[in-house]
Amino acid sequence: MASVPGPLAAVHIDLQWGVLAAAFVVAVLLVAPLGRLFVARGLTDPRSGDAALPERKRGQTPQPLSGGALLAAAFVAAVLLGATGTVSLLAIAFVFAAFTVGLVDDLVPEGLGPRTKLLAQSLAAAPLAVLWWDAGPFELAGPLGSLAALAAALVALNVINTWDHADGLVATFLACAATFAGAPILGGASLGLLVGQLRPPASGRPFLGDAGAHLVGALVLLWPAVWPLLLLPGLDLVRVLVARRRAGRPAWEGDRRHLGQALARRGVPSAWIAVGQVLVLWAIWALFG
């Protein structure tokens, strides 16, 4: 969001906070009915009655995949109201292509295979590659800009997608990123989603799923100023991949080896884990943002 000079600056800042607060209230009001709608349609994770569930999902209460839909609606509202700054049609196409890849991954009973998923993510990055061919960040352009777009998309989408074991963290991540980037509708919606995730699992707590995680990963790429925030989930992903390889497991096979899960097994209260990782996000922003 462009800055506003002169005496209007304070009014502009107040307006931003007002928009964020309004988006927060709307999101909080929509969480419950949207969750009930998704449950009624059988759009949950894990799926109710699935015969073959991955080991990491056995015994979990099915949660409605409404978190990603809520954030997608917030993005549409932000674009229509001009509350995301200047966003090109190619950038919008990239965000929704990434969201679609995640949605398909959610709806396929066993999920997309690793190679199929990487191919689909690469195709989703095509609009971003075209955009960065003309003018990418850090003065990249031409073939180098397009290759950088493809690489950045694969990194961002998978870093956030592997972090979606903790939806509250991803929602907080987007709330921080959107606030720093001047996108108050997305920031408020993320905080509203976070409040919804404090509900007990049996009450239909909203779940981001791969669709929501892909949406967040794509949105972050539109805001180069917040890229340093990817450091925390990125380091967690590297640690998990190394641990899986040492255990003789496929690198992309989901498990419960993430940092938050490892700390929980050691008896660290979940609230401390969440607050600690949020503080790390803010520290990264203070140092590099």
Rank of each mutant, 00 (worst) to 15 (best):
Q16C: 08
E110F: 04
L128V: 11
W272I: 13
T100Q: 01
L65P: 06
A91V: 00
G35F: 03
H214K: 05
L123P: 03
E139I: 10
W133S: 14
L259H: 10
P233Q: 08
W132E: 04
C176N: 07
L119I: 15
A271P: 06
S146T: 04
L169Q: 07
S122H: 02
F24C: 12
F138M: 13
L169N: 01
A141W: 08
D50V: 08
L191R: 00
F38D: 00
A178C: 06
A218I: 02
H165M: 07
L232H: 01
A274W: 12
G187S: 11
G168V: 10
P224I: 12
L30Y: 03
D236Y: 00
L193A: 10
R246E: 11
P201R: 12
V4D: 04
A23Q: 07
A177H: 06
M1W: 09
A120P: 04
G111Q: 06
V278Y: 15
A21R: 05
V39P: 00
V268K: 07
L70T: 09
M1N: 04
Q63I: 03
Q121N: 08
G204A: 10
G59A: 07
D255A: 15
V159Y: 04
H12F: 12
S88M: 05
V79P: 00
D45N: 15
L34N: 01
A202I: 12
P201V: 11
L174D: 01
L81Y: 05
W133P: 00
A83M: 11
D255R: 13
A98N: 02
A166Q: 08
Q121E: 14
V31F: 01
W285L: 14
